[in-house]
């Protein structure tokens, strides 16, 4: 393992301190318990708090700011944060319009946020994101994972909250977007968790991990490495299958997010985008909005995910509205 760090157990603290200094007009960071919050506490709006294991930067701290989150609670690398973090964050940022937790659907995140929610002295609700269609949902399992689609939920619900909407409306929009969003990831290489010091999985030059999770969890299948178009074909097929299974009315306009997992150059991400956009267009979807880059990473994994969100007027409006965070900024 070769990483820019001093001591493994100081890595997160130093990185967060750097993040806070680099964006000091935007955010501040507190330690023990650790959370990142807006420089300017928002007034009279539902506050959005997210969080999760670190290693997915810019998710979530990079999405704290006007039009998106009010606070983010970073856990250890790939380890969900603890309830005291959510409680301290909520204490710092809450208004009397309530607290909305946005939580990626992993046992650890769900349980830690749940325990925080049980102790929270404010009105609250939770949106669970579960856009990863690599994991087939069924009554047998604990459900699908939340991956890059979470960014879309945070962006749009953030916009709605900014407009003064109430907690129920914010939760409803989050749930709707989650339902309308499907993602799948593929890995060319493994990530390396700093504390572990070696790659999470072994993979040869001739293989890819299809359906990989953002923590390096194994995916659907180990498959043969092949041309980008062929890889994208299978990813798009999985997404379209998932969308069709949901039987949503009026699917047409989509937001297409091609997300890098950390070590994949933009050149390759745009190439993937090119293939995905063409294939989706051929299947009758209109790619109305696009986002290409590293938005939900898996530390240093070479790989990418494709996310499709079925737009409607409401989602589109909230996607386009101004946002000013370290990781996403437009309109201001």
């Amino acid at each position: 393992m070769k990483k820019f760090l001093n001591q493994v157990d100081q890595m997160l603290t130093e990185s967060l301190a750097g993040f806070a200094t680099a964006h000091r007009e935007l955010v501040q960071v507190q330690f023990e318990p650790t959370f990142v919050s807006r420089k300017q506490k928002a007034q009279n709006k539902v506050v959005l708090i997210s969080g999760g294991g670190s290693g997915h930067e810019p998710l979530h701290a990079g999405y704290v700011g006007k039009g998106m989150l009010d606070a983010a609670c970073p856990g250890q690398v790939f380890t969900s944060p603890t309830p005291d973090q959510m409680l301290a964050a909520a204490e710092a940022v809450h208004t009397d319009k309530g607290v909305l937790f946005i939580v990626k659907n992993y046992a650890g995140d769900v349980m830690n946020f749940e325990m925080a929610a049980e102790m929270l002295p404010f009105e609250h609700a939770t949106v669970l994101t579960s856009d990863d269609c690599a994991v087939v949902n069924s009554t047998y399992t604990s459900g699908r994972r939340g991956v890059a689609g979470t960014v879309i939920v945070e962006k749009c619900v953030g916009s709605l909250a900014e407009s003064g909407a109430d907690l129920a409306a914010c939760k409803a929009l989050g749930d709707k977007i989650n339902l309308r969003t499907s993602s799948i990831g593929v890995a060319l290489t493994s990530c390396t968790v700093p504390a572990a010091g070696r790659p999470t999985f072994d993979i040869t030059e001739a293989e890819i991990e299809m359906g990989v999770g953002i923590h390096g969890e194994p995916g659907r299948r180990r498959e043969a490495m092949r041309a980008a178009d062929a890889i994208v074909t299978d990813m798009v097929a999985a997404i379209v299958h998932d969308i069709e299974a949901k039987q949503l009315p009026g699917a047409g306009d989509i937001l297409l997010l091609v997300n890098g997992l950390g070590a994949t150059p933009l050149m390759e991400l745009y190439l993937i985008y090119h293939a995905a956009a063409e294939q989706l267009t051929a299947k009758g979807y209109q790619v109305t909005r696009s986002l290409v880059g590293n938005y939900t990473t898996a530390i240093d994994m070479a790989g990418a995910s494709i996310t499709v969100c079925l737009l409607d007027q409401e989602i589109l409006k909230h996607w386009d509205s101004p946002v000013h965070t370290a990781g996403l900024r437009w309109g201001c």
């Binding site: 250890q76 380890t79 349980m111 830690n112």
Partner: peptide
Amino acid sequence: LLSTIGGASGPLFA
């Protein structure tokens, strides 16, 4: 443990 471990095992052992 609740405020230290995190992850799935943290709330469970706590």
